[in-house]
Amino acid sequence: MYRVWYYPRKAVEWVLLIGVALVFVFPFLWMLLTAFKTLPEIYQFPPTLLPEQWEFGNFAKAWETGPFLTYVLNSFLVAVGILLLQFFTAVPAAYAFARYKFRGRNWLFGLTLIALMIPPQIVFLPVYVEMSHFQLVDTLWALILPYGASAFGIFLLRQSFMQVPDEVIEAARLDDASEWKIMWRIMVPMAKPVLVTFGLFSFIYHWNDYFWPLIMTNSDSVRTLPIGIWMLKASEGGKHWNMIMAGNVMLVFPILIVFFIAQRHIIRAFIYQSK
């Protein structure tokens, strides 16, 4: 450890990093540990950090209070469905914005950027009306379709497509590749780190999303996991924080897995962007 003192700059960096990490890690850790505590221990004062008695039953109990398998499945269908739709709309749109000159391009792109700045809370009412017009309220479609195109995805992909050298595309044209093929075989593979990052953002956002499913669904059969966990709180009457935290751990677990798989690409995407 004493070596650190030879590098004061490094030491400051370390202290800052540890500080920031604590701010982010501590609540997470608290959630995880609470999920393993018994109900009396939660209300104990002074609070304990580590459970005095590890209680593993909270997970099973939480799972059994509602149709959690359905919730998980719905969450998965919605998050993946949105992701696929966004992918297939963002790639051609970004390719057009990045590589074609057409009338109204800047105007349309400006419109896309504006869409980026409008939160769903502002537009949910007209969208709800639209969904109910097509009798899609209280179906998974109402959760997926409104998010089918992502302004953020288009914006991010366009930046990355613009970095592809002209010559590479011209070489492909000389190789008699169609525009479709250039898009999917040349541009998309080159944008892979950015795509992975975007996919992750989108997946996490919609996996965790609470607001939209709350508005668009009424029945258990189409509810998603965040709603299910909220219901956990309501159903038991009392504040069973240990069970709620167990539910939350189940909620974030898939995200952690996805994140660890994608980590390498995310780091590369940011290096790429700042070049």
Binding site: P165, E167, V168, E170, A171, R185, I186, P189, M190, K192
Partner: peptide, 8 residues
């Protein structure tokens, strides 16, 4: 001039 190979 800069080869323009398909990098992926």
């Amino acid at each position: 001039q800069n080869y323009a190979l398909y990098p992926t």
